[in-house]
């Protein structure tokens, strides 16, 4: 597999009245062509800002202050605004969480999809419209000819998300960023949408960056996983390794908090394991390891020095002093409910 996207030491900062906030703080990531990379973390950990930085759509009071983003060899951060606009939608596209607010309520959905096709593929309006009906059919909208003439409010949440995906697919991008694409949907609809994304991915050999807080979605849809905490990646590996041999205490805590994984224990009336405390607020600067005040393995060093993401075993990166020092051994830190 060839390398499609490489992020190196990306930092995105916001200047606010209370000072500077690093929403994304030194993230490095590689995504191969045709691969699904899951990014998982709790709210406020910088997942969405990472995606918006990739698209160069960071809100006005923030900017990318450091790093490089190579997309098939080109540094996206060095492109002119014009070149970047040609890139968005055609090479890299994005699906947002809220399908209601990301569609324009005053245009018919067919037109909205056709617009992207017209702009990027320079096709005449009529042909673009025909293609847009074709894409609506492909994402499983019944009676697409007729539905293309409907407005967004005529669609249900799941159908709207299908429209968003049709739009994102319309120019055959090589990379799709999906930011919590199923969070607002019911489970049965979620299953359908995930199936649709993975089918389209296979068909077009497209890479997907799937951002979610739901570990179940990650387990089902991703091939590789990066776990984010407070603006940083704390662990990354293949999906099997993350779920079977999580090495960072935060990843372990996350996995143990999911009721479905620990049923054997719960049936005996035991409690769910929890991570004490909560994610540090953006203004709370934590010295040393960002996780140390919630970590049950924290040592003196953790509060002083910040660990770096390092390769513990081939393809498995962890940023934790304990794992790095070999204190846990390779599998010593088993989760209770593995």
């Amino acid at each position: 597999m060839s390398l499609l996207l490489e992020i190196k030491d990306l930092k995105t900062a916001f200047d606010t009245a209370q000072g500077r906030i690093n929403a994304v703080d030194g993230v490095s990531l590689k995504v191969n062509a045709g691969e699904t990379m899951g990014i998982v973390g709790e709210s406020g950990c910088g997942k969405t800002m990472l995606a918006l930085s990739l698209m160069r759509l960071v809100p006005a009071n923030g900017k990318v202050v450091n790093g490089e983003i190579f997309f098939s060899g080109k540094d996206l951060l060095k492109l002119s605004e014009e070149e970047m606009r040609a890139m968005r939608g055609s090479e890299i596209s994005m699906v947002f969480q809220e399908p209601m607010t990301s569609l324009n309520p005053v245009f018919r959905v067919g037109e909205q999809i056709a617009e992207a096709i017209r702009l990027h593929q320079h096709l005449p309006a009529k042909q673009a419209m025909e293609l847009s009906v074709e894409y609506l059919r492909e994402v499983g909208i019944p009676d697409p000819q007729k539905r293309a003439m409907d407005y967004p409010h005529n669609f249900s949440g799941g159908m709207r998300q299908r429209v968003m995906i049709a739009m994102a697919m319309s120019c055959h991008p090589r990379l799709m960023l999906a930011d919590e694409p199923t969070t607002a949907l019911d489970v049965t609809i979620q299953a359908q949408i995930l199936d649709l994304i993975s089918g389209l991915k296979e068909k077009n050999n497209m890479a997907v960056v799937l951002i979610t807080h739901d570990l179940g979605v990650i387990a089902q849809a991703a091939e590789k996983v990066a776990v984010m905490y407070a603006g940083k990646i704390v662990e990354s590996s293949s999906v099997e390794k993350i779920f079977e041999n999580p090495l960072h205490p935060y990843t372990q805590g996350l996995l143990e908090s999911v009721p479905a994984r620990c049923l054997k224990y719960l049936e005996r009336g035991e409690y769910l394991k929890t991570i004490p405390g909560s994610v540090p607020g953006l203004y709370d600067f934590v010295q040393g390891c960002r996780f140390h005040d919630r970590c049950s393995y924290a040592m003196e060093d953790c509060a002083r020095r910040e660990p770096k993401l390092s390769e513990i075993e081939p393809g498995h990166f962890v940023s934790c002093w304990k794992t790095e020092n070999g204190a846990f051994g390779k599998r010593a830190l088993q989760t209770r409910c593995g």
Binding site: T188, A191, L194, D195, G216, Q220, A222, A260
Partner: peptide, 15 residues
């Protein structure tokens, strides 16, 4: 029940 994503990456669901 079939729609709930399982937390085991080796058990991909049939949907």
């Amino acid at each position: 029940l079939a729609a709930v994503p399982s937390c085991d990456p080796r058990k991909k669901k049939e949907i």
